[in-house]
């Protein structure tokens, strides 16, 4: 039971083959924590309480220890986000090459401040730190893909092309 009395939904990995492979790769079970969280988040969109319990069970650690990881790493989310994560790098090389304008532009275009999701649920705007691609600044990562050295016009076209 959850604290509010509703029965707990169990989380099931749909790609059980991948899950088993991850668990078998490491000399100990706990090392599989991060990869299992990644796999689960890809499936579910964010880290639910049920995911934390499931990962704890497979890695044979306490759910609090899994939660400890989830809260530490910026790529794990405890709340649902928009379909597309717009992650704008704000560190120095990007900032010197127009990253701040990116954030302002997206904020104006969709009325969303960093951290917020558009009302249609299509985009979440996030400011992130150096993405390791400073030579092609400014850099925006949309979901898994990097988009590098875009002008505001090109950014606009790209955003409009996302279905």
């Amino acid at each position: 039971m959850n604290s509010n009395g509703t029965p707990k939904q169990k989380f099931i990995f749909t790609d059980s083959g991948r899950m088993e492979k991850i668990l078998s790769q490491y000399p100990d079970k706990r090392s599989a924590t991060l990869p299992l969280l990644h796999l689960a988040q890809t499936q579910e969109g964010f880290i639910t309480g049920a995911i934390i319990d499931a990962v704890a069970q497979y890695t044979e650690i306490h759910p609090a220890e899994v939660m400890d990881c989830v809260s530490f790493y910026t790529m794990f989310f405890r709340r649902p986000l928009g379909t597309n994560k717009l992650q704008v790098c704000q560190t120095l090389s990007c900032s010197l090459n127009g990253a701040d304008d990116f954030v302002d532009h997206i904020t104006q275009k969709y009325g969303t401040k960093p951290g917020e999701t558009t009302s249609d649920g299509k985009f979440t705007l996030l400011k992130v730190e150096c993405l390791g691609s400073c030579g092609t600044a400014p850099v925006i990562q949309i979901n898994n893909d990097y988009h590098e050295g875009l002008s505001i016009n090109e950014l606009d076209k790209l955003l409009d092309s996302i279905p």
């Binding site: 706990r30 090392s31 924590t33 991060l34 790529m75």
Partner: peptide
């Protein structure tokens, strides 16, 4: 020899070698 590819999850400090090792062990970095 086996090679396992392990993805981090967004934390600069996991580049520091002992933070990295903790992270690989399934803990905060």
């Amino acid at each position: 020899l086996d090679v396992v590819i392990h993805r981090g999850a967004g934390a600069y400090i996991c580049g520091e070698e002992t933070g990295l090792i903790e992270s690989l062990e399934g803990k905060r970095g």
